[in-house]
Design a protein around this nucleic acid. Sequence first.
DNA 1: AGGTCACGCTTAACCGGGTAAGTGACCCGA
DNA 2: TCGGGTCACTTACCCGGTTAAGCGTGACCT
Lengths: 343, 343
Amino acid sequence: MTRRVTIADIAAAAGVSKGAVSYALNGRPGVSETTRTKILAIAAEMGFVPNRAARSLSVSSAQAVGIALRRSARTLGIEPYFMELISGIEATLSAGSFGLTLQIVDTVEAELEVYRRWWAERRVDGVLMCDVGSDDRRLDFVADLGLPAVAVGGPVEGARLPAVWHDDAAPCREILEYLHALGHRRIARVAGFDHLLHTAIRDSAYADTAAALDLEAMETFHSDYTGEQGARITRRLLSSAKRPTAIIFDNDVMAVAGLGVAHELGIHVPHELSIVAWDDSPLCRLTHPALTSLTRDISAYGAQCAQALLSIIGAEPHEDRAFSVQCRPAQLSPRGSTAPARA
Amino acid sequence: MTRRVTIADIAAAAGVSKGAVSYALNGRPGVSETTRTKILAIAAEMGFVPNRAARSLSVSSAQAVGIALRRSARTLGIEPYFMELISGIEATLSAGSFGLTLQIVDTVEAELEVYRRWWAERRVDGVLMCDVGSDDRRLDFVADLGLPAVAVGGPVEGARLPAVWHDDAAPCREILEYLHALGHRRIARVAGFDHLLHTAIRDSAYADTAAALDLEAMETFHSDYTGEQGARITRRLLSSAKRPTAIIFDNDVMAVAGLGVAHELGIHVPHELSIVAWDDSPLCRLTHPALTSLTRDISAYGAQCAQALLSIIGAEPHEDRAFSVQCRPAQLSPRGSTAPARA
DNA sequence: AGGTCACGCTTAACCGGGTAAGTGACCCGA
DNA sequence: TCGGGTCACTTACCCGGTTAAGCGTGACCT
């Protein structure tokens, strides 16, 4: 294992100074084309890769972005959402030769502390914030810190921060009208954390749409996105006297759990109960019947978030430095879990 | 947003030199207790956090480890395994104030290139390698590179690298004997990638155990761990003339898909078909019936892997610098998806 | 009293790459 | 022929934290 090769080594080999090598490698003026080619050739031959720490120290940029996830290991593991998001983020970042630093935290305080440390240490150039809440402390915190950040979700009112989001209200209307057209009049919804912004948005979208349709019942129950909670709520719903003929779940995991409960109670899906899931992961196609769900390209979403962050960091050509980006809303993919309500 | 505070600022405020501040902050001898306390107080008051790049540059350590995942976004998303593993890894790392750098790659070549770059850039101090294959190019590659690494899985023969693994053979025997005791004589197995080391180990463990028992059939079909493949193979198995009475799946995702296929074909689980899954994620408890599965604590496993890596990096008290670590094998958790075979 | 040693601190160099300022050499126009 | 300008490169210092070496002071020993 030989010593790493530094620009000093290249300079020596090429018979020029460190400075010339630096200019040559960074494509800056200051060296002749002949010398540049020679230096590049030598650098390639010696397998030169610049030391990240040294570069960071002088240009003061980490060439990395951070993401702190505040969800339990179990939720993170089972929800395909996060890994797909990360994979999309990662693809964009590595295309721009940025690194991704990941940390899992317990509490908001811990999360804020991570941001503070990352920024003070200059370990990251910016962060992506998931699970945006309706009145999120983190937004002001990072803005005060001066830490470049993008909110993954929104829209964020009076934002001092750009957000990448999609319209959640339209798909809600779409689902409800679809179920209504199928003849469903008693509909329930198992929602996610009620403190999250998109939950609030969906809440009111459902309420508004329900009011406009002649529904007998449209109730919402908040949960924590876990299968256990999803199953528990579904079990209660399906055991009630006037049970709903359709249930909408705010994520795929709860929907699968709900389907399990229906099986357990001998309630046939879709003949006796229709099920709709948000977030069309492969999970929705695993079950029988396959779940009708709201499809969105989460990888692409992650990619857009990363793009937005790179843009405010300034690593990107900032022609389209749009402050907030709205993505294509989720599309309803009808599958086997929805059917006309029985008379 | 004021300028970052550096040790020079603290030195000025305390009326001492940069060197003294450094000694004080790092708990090294060279300053009196009085001065040390004073410096620490001033540093705390000014909110000092050392610049990571500067420290890395002088001590040449990145205080970060890397993990490159070579799986498609969809597999990563849906398999709870990875996120649980990462969460365990992360917990240990952040306890030692190490960062985790994540990258997703397509090919082995890309993965090797990532390792080379990370190490050359000194972006990481070591890496964790998942999905160890039976004749894995990566092992020699990183060893040649001199990049500290730990294999997540094993055991690796003639290893130049430590590995953290658990006995896969014993649980295989346990499953097969359990199913045999339940009266099953025609058993099938839907396995994972055949190039992976643990797949090979399980292959021979099943073969050996099957030979010792009076089984009518014990066939294995390799797949790619996706639900689609799992469903396809299960569909073929259950449509055959002499269909198995029990199927063992090498991961939870395929098991859930298999259960879906059984429902689809009107085959009752567990009365007509028993199902066993490896890797007991919450997914296995979501379905109805809940899946009998092999439980192991994946977070804890990840934590041990990270511990091993920190130990060879030298960041840990290396009392127990065991070269390879064997963990507690998976335990069978019987649930509703297994029952006595029908006569 | 003189020598020695430990302590507490400063100085200065170093890690490796970036970059402003400086220096010849050369060309060009007046 | 000389001033002015450009080109090609070197010099030197910067980033911020670490650390070997140096140095003055006081204590302790003989």
